[in-house]
Each structure stands twice: as structure tokens, then as C-alpha cells.
Amino acid sequence: MQNPSCSSQYDKMIKENMNEAMPDILSGVLGIQAARAEDLAERIQYTKERIPDQLKKITDDSGETFVLHIEWQLKNDAEMIDRMLEYRAMLRRKYRINIRQYVLFMGKTTSTMINRIEERDLKFRFHLIVLYQIDYKVFLASEKPEQKILAVLGDFCKEDPETVLRKIIEGIKAKTKGSLAGQRYMNQLRILVQLRNLETQFNHIMESVSTFFKEERDPYYIRGFQKGTEKAAIKAAIRASSEFAERLIEGTDHTDEVIAKLAGVTVPFVKRKRRALIKKKNINE
């Protein structure tokens, strides 16, 4: 079972990336040919509040307009069918147009979630898509790094995992401008490879392609000569890695060395962070 803090990092990453990847997700994964798409407010509230992962108003190439509701699910949830039914009722009441609902399952096990209800006076279903059953090349073929990252969750089609990972990393490298953006995507890929237990292969590949992130431009080594928006991006990258390291310290039994590799920081940094967390915990107690 995933630690709640680990689940939140996947949620954050998905929300950051999916606006960019959405056009390819629509056509390549959901089979929707969108002629027009606009974001909708994600908060729904009547007697209770619900915040869907993604909502969009879509007009497809046939002229039909509908609300697209997507949930990204990390593990099996026996209550998913009821949650989706609640969402459906709230969305239908608010927007008064057809609703299409999809749950994209990121887990590495077989999905056991029920996606339909057939009872007297009630019929309902949502689309359940298991990512590991989709050929990873569907994601890798995208021009957007945000979707290429998702290839690690797909079906490797009996290919060697390290070979596939290398293709993904090289594909991201080819479509990424600047080492700061590249570092961000690699940190996100570090998170996703844990869902497939591919940390060892990932770290081995990263050692051989380390020139992708030149040390003098790596946000963990920059010493103040960057300015403006680049400086802000550096701070954001450092903060994200620091937060990721903190979650690994609190939610796993990994050694400081392993955490440093996963989070893209130094071992001394992890040791300082661990001491600070212990001190904070003792004060709170």
C-alpha cells in the first residue's frame, strides 16, 4: 500500500503535467478527437464538495459538446464506483450537458474496481483504462515530454525494461529545452519508476547519461549567478527536490544514499534534512 505522502506527490505531478499532455491523451488514449477544449472549474459543491482531478469542456470533431471528467488512480478503490456516480450527478446538475468519465489506473496490479452499476431503476458506468495495458510507444510517440514520461507506466511488450527506460530518457532529452526543464522531468520520472520497481535500472541509466545535466547548470550546484525567471525556476526545482527527499525520509525505510539518488540531492543534504525532521518531531511531542 502506498504511503499517503507518496500518493500526494503523484497527484501533484499529474496536475502539473496534464494540461500539456492532454491533447495527446485525448486522441491517443481516450479516442476523443477534440476540435475545441476549455478548462472548467474543478470544485463542485452542493451539500458536499468534490474536487475532480481534471475537468474540461470538449467539443469533438463531430460537433458534440460534453464535459470530460478524468480521475488518475494509483491503487484499487472499492468505493470508486460510488465516487464516480456522485461526481456524475453533481456535474450533470451543474453543467446540464452530457458527461464522459474516465478513470486512468496507474497501478502495477490488475484493477479490481467495478466500473458499472446495473440495478433496478439505475444503470451507470464509467470508462476504466489500465495504463499498463497500453503499449508504451503510444505515450513515447508524443512530442510533449509530459506525456513521454507516462510511457514508464505502459506495457513494455516484453522489451527489456532498461532498454525501454533508455528510450524514454532519450526521448525526453530530445524534446526538452534547457537543463532546468530536463531536471524537472527527470525528477518526475524518478517518482514514476517507483511504481514499476525500476529504480535500479533508472539510476544505472542516469549514470551513463549524466552529461545531459551539466554540473555548472544543475540547479543543485548553481551559486547565485542566475537571475530573473531562471532564478525562480531554480528555486522551484530545489524546493521540489527538497520536498521529495522529505517525503522519502518520512514515508520509506530507504537509506540516505538511496534517497539522495532518488531525489537528485547530495547525501549530506539528506542527513541534514533527516536531523531537522527528527528535531521538529521532538519539539512537537
Score class of each variant (00 low, 15 high):
G182W: 09
T211M: 07
E159L: 14
E230F: 07
I168G: 03
E215V: 03
A151C: 08
V209N: 04
P161T: 03
E215C: 01
G224S: 05
I149K: 06
T176M: 07
E216K: 09
K173H: 14
Q147L: 15
C157W: 00
D218A: 06
L165V: 01
R184S: 15
P219D: 03
I169Y: 02
P219I: 12
E162I: 13
K148L: 02
K173D: 14
M186K: 12
F212S: 02
Q147I: 12
F225D: 13
L150E: 01
I172W: 06
E230H: 09
I169M: 08
K231M: 10
E199C: 07
T211W: 08
K173E: 12
T211C: 01
R166D: 11
Q183I: 14
R190I: 01
F156T: 05
P219T: 10
G228P: 01
N203P: 03
Q147N: 03
Q201I: 00
H204F: 00
K175I: 05
Q226C: 10
L198A: 14
K148T: 04
R184Q: 13
E215M: 07
L150F: 15
F225M: 11
T211P: 00
E216F: 04
A181Y: 12
P219G: 09
L195Q: 15
K167R: 15
G171L: 05
K227D: 09
L198Y: 10
E199P: 00
T200V: 10
R166K: 14
R223F: 08
I222G: 01
T163Y: 13
E162M: 11
I172S: 05
R196F: 04
R184F: 11
Q226R: 14
K173R: 13
K173T: 05
F202H: 08
E159I: 02
C157E: 14
M186R: 13
K231R: 15
P161R: 08
V209A: 01
K158H: 13
G228Q: 05
N197Q: 09
K167P: 04
I205W: 01
E170K: 13
T229V: 09
V164P: 02
S179L: 09
Q194L: 10
N187K: 02
R223G: 03
M186L: 15
K231N: 12
I191Q: 09
Y220G: 04
R223P: 00
K173M: 07
G228W: 09
L189F: 01
E215N: 09
D218R: 08
N187G: 15
Q194N: 10
T176I: 10
P145E: 03
S210D: 02
T200N: 07
R184Y: 14
Y220W: 12
H204N: 06
I191H: 11
Q147K: 08
T229L: 10
S208Y: 00
Q194E: 13
R190H: 15
S208D: 11
K231V: 09
I191M: 15
L195P: 02
I205D: 00
G154T: 13
V193I: 15
K175A: 15
R190C: 11
L195D: 15
Y185V: 05
I168S: 05
D155K: 11
R196M: 04
N187S: 14
M186E: 10
G228K: 08
Y221C: 06
A174Y: 00
E215K: 13
